[in-house]
Simulated scan of single mutants.
Amino acid sequence: MTKAEITNEISRATGIDKENVLQVVEKFMEVVKDSLGKGENVYLRGFGSFIVKERAEKTGRNISKNTAVIIPAHKIPSFKPCNTFKEMVAERTSK
């Protein structure tokens, strides 16, 4: 599902025009990105958490040159769904 499809679905369900829904969806994504950029996690009860994960330093391989490359420790954004969300997805997809 794309951002446009999400916007259309919310607009249809609420009766709010698409332009306003799109602004809200884009602002939500902006707030999540800004929070994660500051190292702050975002918790949405009943849905899940947008979290910042720390990746440890590791050694990788440059296949074309056949050399070892050190990949430094870094942070990445991640999403962790809540248990009820995971159960709902498992239940609906197993049918």
Rank of each mutant, 00 (worst) to 15 (best):
A68R: 13
P81A: 12
I71P: 03
I16M: 07
D34T: 10
K3A: 05
I76K: 15
F50W: 13
P72V: 07
I16E: 02
E30C: 01
A73E: 07
R92Q: 14
S35V: 02
M29Y: 11
G60R: 09
F79E: 11
I76V: 15
K80T: 15
T59N: 09
N20H: 13
S64H: 14
F79P: 10
F85R: 06
K75G: 03
F79W: 10
T7H: 02
P72E: 05
P72N: 07
L36R: 07
K38I: 03
M88V: 07
G37D: 03
K65G: 00
G60H: 09
G39K: 10
I76R: 13
R55H: 14
K86I: 11
T14V: 06
R12A: 13
K80Y: 03
A68C: 00
N41P: 07
E57F: 07
T14L: 06
R92A: 12
E19I: 05
V24R: 08
D34G: 06
I16H: 01
L22N: 09
V25S: 01
K65V: 01
S64C: 00
K33T: 13
T84F: 03
G48E: 10
T2N: 12
I6E: 02
I63G: 03
T59S: 11
K65N: 11
S94V: 05
N8D: 13
P77W: 10
K27Q: 09
F79L: 09
E26V: 04
K65T: 15
S11P: 00
I10Q: 04
F85N: 03
F85E: 01
G37Q: 04
I10R: 02
S64Q: 15
E30F: 04
K86Q: 12
D34C: 00
T14G: 07
N66P: 01
S78I: 04
K86M: 11
K58Q: 14
T7E: 08
E9Y: 11
F47I: 13
E9N: 14
V89P: 05
P72Y: 06
V25Q: 02
F79A: 10
E30V: 00
T84V: 11
Y43Q: 14
E54D: 15
N8H: 06
S94Y: 00
S49D: 13
L36K: 07
Y43E: 15
V32F: 03
S49A: 15
E57C: 06
P77D: 10
E30I: 00
M29G: 14
E5G: 03
F47H: 08
I76Y: 04
F85C: 12
V21P: 01
